[in-house]
């Protein structure tokens, strides 16, 4: 499999504090990859570094054949990476349709845009109903659907999503994952998802990485890790090896 995204040994600092150290992640074309880990593990930092909001002090990010380390967020977006960051980030002053239209601003293929627009509204009928309403008036779940729909309208090659389940009812989370898996299966969309819940990740992903204290503790095929024991150890740091790494990190 060819790697669509290759994160190679990145270290990212917030002023002097390293939030992630020497993290390497690969995402193959058409794969669903999940990064799991507890709060403060550096998951969001990793995603923000891919999208160019943060710059790594060491290491590189390669997308396709292009080195995108330290590129502008808008240029990263224009290369085909669409990020759904943590906390949803709808534009509350814009209505639902305007929010979605922002997703299409990089594109010139009018007829295809309209087709995708229809697809997104079919996928999330509630957005069609509320087309003219300010996005700030939507519920949390509806906002999550809006940002996913908006990201889809950029027609990304890779979509990264930060905690799609945060603050949502389990039923809605099921629906979100159903949609994401469906997108991969039908359109070959590549997905990199950050998730706190390792069960969710193991269910949805092809491969997972466990990130704790800013370092990758474990990675592998979701199939092989399905019983969850190894993942839990890496996640919570109970095993001897993980404990050792934890000490080094602090």
């Amino acid at each position: 499999m060819t790697a669509l995204l290759k994160i190679d040994g990145i270290t990212v600092h917030y002023s002097r504090l390293a939030a992630v150290r020497n993290v390497s992640v690969e995402v193959g074309e058409g794969e669903i990859v999940c990064i799991v880990g507890p709060n403060g593990a550096g998951k969001s930092t990793t995603l923000l570094t891919i999208s160019g909001i943060l710059s790594p002090t060491e290491g590189t990010v390669t997308f396709g054949s292009k080195n995108i380390t330290g590129a502008n967020p808008e240029n990263v977006a224009r290369m085909g990476i669409s990020q759904v960051p943590e906390g949803r980030h709808v534009f509350t002053v814009l209505n639902v349709e305007e929010n979605l239209r922002i997703g299409t601003l990089m594109r010139r293929d009018r007829s295809e845009i309209e087709k995708d627009f229809k697809m997104v509204l079919d996928m999330f009928p509630v957005l069609a109903e509320r087309r003219r309403q300010p996005a700030g008036k939507l519920s949390g779940g509806e906002q999550q659907m809006l940002v996913i729909g908006r990201a889809l309208l950029t027609r990304p090659k890779l979509m990264t999503i930060d905690e799609p389940s945060l603050g949502l009812a389990p039923k809605i989370v099921d629906r979100v994952y159903e949609v994401l898996t469906d997108l991969r299966n039908r359109m070959g969309l590549t997905l990199l998802i950050v998730e706190q819940s390792s069960e969710r990740a193991l269910k949805a992903a092809d491969r997972i990485y466990v990130l704790r204290s800013g370092q990758i503790q474990l990675s592998g095929n979701a199939k092989d890790l399905r019983d969850g024991e190894k993942v839990k150890q890496a996640y919570f740091g109970f095993s001897d090896a993980a404990k050792h790494v934890g000490e080094v990190a602090f």
């Binding site: 909001i53 967020p73 808008e74 669409s82 960051p85 002053v93 922002i102 997703g103």
Partner: peptide, 12 residues
């Protein structure tokens, strides 16, 4: 004006 970072991540 509302969320510059998010706008940039969408290509603005």
């Amino acid at each position: 004006a509302e969320d510059f970072k998010m706008a940039r991540m969408l290509g603005v």
